[in-house]
């Protein structure tokens, strides 16, 4: 099948490439743009490890073709930290509150957490849990992930943050 040209903005920079129409967005990001932060987890749109932010929505990049993202503005986990390397409040929160163990789900948790806080800057615990319902973690039991997002929400609001987890 003939390849088609796709152009998009990824982490603030223009990106383009030739893809087969059947190329999934996750494979375009990882294999052609070398952005390996988003992970292929379940590959069946259940686990959320492949989550990226696309035109202001959290999407599972394993369930979208790269051609569908033509013209889109995408943020992957690589684009979260400031250019100098200063961590985003969410990344800091995951570090401080032990929001990860193996780390496989973390890029998806971070990009999903980013959109959640953009839409709802001070979510309740229940709203956080509902907001990350499409992201599976098999290590933490979610407790510290919720705390990490609460930490980031407080940090972004300029409020005092809770002490780090034990």
């Amino acid at each position: 099948m003939a390849k088609v040209q796709v152009t998009m903005k990824v982490n603030g920079a223009p990106a383009e490439g030739l893809v087969e129409p059947r190329t999934l967005l996750i494979h375009f990001l990882r294999e052609q743009l070398n952005l390996t932060g988003a992970h292929v987890g379940c590959d069946t749109s259940h686990c959320g490890a492949c989550t990226v932010d696309l035109d202001g929505r959290s999407v599972k990049s394993c369930t979208m073709f790269a051609v569908q993202a033509d013209g889109a503005d995408i943020l992957t986990v690589e684009g979260l930290a400031a250019p100098g390397g200063t961590l985003h409040a969410l990344q800091e929160g995951f570090r401080e509150m032990h929001g990860l163990q193996c780390g496989f789900c973390t890029p998806g948790m971070l990009t999903r957490g980013y959109r959640l806080l953009e839409e709802n800057p001070r979510p309740s615990e229940d709203e956080i849990r509902a907001g990350i319902a499409g992201n599976l973690c098999r290590c933490t039991g979610y407790q510290n992930i919720v705390k990490a997002i609460q930490y980031a929400a407080a940090r972004l609001a300029g409020a005092p943050v809770k002490e780090a987890a034990e």
Binding site: G48, V59, R112
Partner: peptide, 9 residues
């Protein structure tokens, strides 16, 4: 229906 990511799309 499904989860937040699926509902966005």
């Amino acid at each position: 229906i499904a989860d937040p990511q699926v509902r966005y799309v």
